[in-house]
């Protein structure tokens, strides 16, 4: 009787319990991400850290940020499994890296690369008060030519 009870009862209990735990965790991580992206102008969710990216796509984004000398906050999804899944759910985007500017999801590696090439990134950064180092370099060059 005891085993029968356990067999029929435990799965139900387990499922409900785990289910509610999971949605609780989801809500918590969602809130955490929301805070991160809204409290920082530029945020990069990546694999590894800027000094040692662990994925070529993440590395490409880091290099683009470096070229423009963008100050940004980075988060390593490999060190936090909750964050790794949570960020995908938050932005409804299936891959890492992910870049946020002014709380808004901008894109992954492909989009950043294209925005960099088209000059759009310089404009987007300008909107949030960040002057790209590429723009500064260009201005200096023009000044030199004038003289």
């Amino acid at each position: 009787m005891n085993t029968l009870l356990r067999r029929s009862f435990l799965p139900v209990f387990n499922n409900t319990f785990r289910g509610s735990c999971r949605s609780f965790a989801d809500a918590a991580i969602n809130e955490k991400i929301d805070k991160i992206v809204k409290n920082n102008k530029v945020v990069v969710f990546m694999k590894g850290v800027p000094d040692a990216p662990r994925c070529g796509f993440s590395n490409a984004v880091v290099q683009i940020m470096r070229m423009h000398a963008v100050p940004y906050v980075s988060h390593d999804v490999l060190s936090d499994e909750n964050l790794r899944q949570g960020i995908k759910d938050y932005s409804n985007w299936p891959t890492i890296p992910q870049v946020f500017i002014n709380g808004e999801f901008v894109g992954g590696c492909d989009i950043m690369l294209q925005m960099h090439q088209s000059g759009e990134l310089v404009e987007e950064l300008k909107k949030v008060g960040i002057k790209s180092a590429l723009l500064t370099a260009e201005e200096t060059k023009k000044e030199m030519e004038k003289k």
């Binding site: 662990r54 994925c55 070529g56 796509f57 590696c109």
Partner: peptide
Amino acid sequence: SSPNCRGGF
């Protein structure tokens, strides 16, 4: 071509 892998998991 895409960037080279850097280890991953």
